Amino acid sequence: MMASSSPPSPTAVPLLTRVTLLLTAALTIMSGATIAPSLPAMQQHFAALPNAAVLVRLTVTVVGLAIALSAPLSGWLTDRIGRKRVLVAALVLYALAGSSGLYAPDLPALMLGRVLLGLAVGATMTAGSALAADLFVGEARARFLGFQSAFTSLGGVLFLPLGGLLAGVGWRAPFAVYLSALLIVPLALRLPRGEVTAPGGVAEAAGIPWRLVGPAYAVALAYMVVFYLMPTQLPYRLEGLGVPPASVGFVMGISTLSGALAALWFARRGGTKRPAVTAGFSLLALGTGWAIVSLAPGAGWVAPGLMIGGAGAGMVTPNLNTFLAALAPAHARGRVLSGLSASIFLGQFLSPLLAQPFVQGTDVSPAFRIGAIFAAGLAGALLLIGIKTSRSGLAPGN
């Protein structure tokens, strides 16, 4: 049924393997965050095009749509041919497609490059998470998945300011950062293959508890719709408050830094036995932070909102990742985790579309306000579910 042996004990996982998986995780947020500070300048460059304001924002979020559509295939390939093969190929595509913004002659060509980048990000995220889930079990798995999420946020801490600095050179310059994925390829070639499902083996959906997996996907999608107001709308909010483009990335990095610290806290705790409650408090923090951002009278007031909202967001992904990795049977782990990737990045794509009706000219604060209300409502529902059940129906096993 399986073409691989039992996973090694956590202490037997080589340091190089751990480092490689963590570096790979840092590429996830980079896919959109790196070019976020360039959005206002990019919009000016393409101002002659109809609906330029929405189309330029979609250069960030079309990546999410590509991931959402391709994730099932990425998960199937990850389960069938191995995590390592998928990951190496995805890293190469990531570098080539991501850097296409350096030379794309027009907006449609740029969009095509972003779509291909989305295919690469989905495969990278799915293969990396599935391999980590193969190699670790129990609390060790929760800790490492927490560290992966922390590195995802730390990638934003690095690449958002870098993108902001490069945006001062020109809106195309940040696209060069995507070439850094090529540096990870030699490391990825040394990774273990991970679990593989033999053709003709276990049925595709055998053993997958969809009654728990489905709601987790819904929470992930809703969370990302709200959280992704940060890279797609915050640059405009900061511009309206007088923040120069070169500083936008540094301000946005506050959110990703606090998210990284929250994910590290999750990792140190070794996960949680009440994922619904954890998700509820996380979304409540996210909503509180975005409410502060929406009401901020000056740039200095945005920072605490980003700290609080980022901390809440930093807990959501490792919580859901750990929960689903524990629920999924090994033969279907790639497919289950690819569904989480699809939900998260579909939320990224939908975020600016759902926010646009609440954007009033150059004022995006109403979008943050509505997002805060929605997050608080979802948080309340999750807290009620978690508190009213003596034993959480979402509690994962090993």
Rank of each mutant, 00 (worst) to 15 (best):
G194W: 13
A132N: 13
L21S: 09
P10F: 01
G201P: 10
G300K: 14
L116Q: 09
P105W: 07
Q43L: 00
S74N: 03
A285Y: 08
P161K: 06
G82C: 01
I81V: 13
M125N: 12
P199R: 14
T362D: 13
M224D: 00
T28S: 10
R237C: 02
T322G: 06
G32N: 04
A66S: 13
G310R: 14
M111F: 13
P161L: 02
G249P: 13
I370A: 13
G82D: 01
W171R: 15
A95W: 11
L87V: 03
A203I: 01
R269S: 07
L23D: 06
Y223F: 08
M230F: 03
A313C: 02
P244V: 01
G271R: 10
L286H: 10
G339M: 03
L107D: 03
G201Y: 12
K84F: 05
A376K: 10
I387L: 09
A109N: 07
A218Y: 11
G386T: 01
A142G: 02
G194R: 15
D106I: 05
V225Q: 03
A216M: 10
A142Y: 02
T124W: 01
A33W: 05
T28Q: 11
G164T: 03
G309I: 09
N319F: 00
S258T: 12
E239Y: 12
Y178P: 14
F358V: 05
S255G: 10
G339R: 08
A222L: 06
A127W: 10
Q148F: 01
L73C: 03
G300S: 07
S351A: 15
L284E: 05
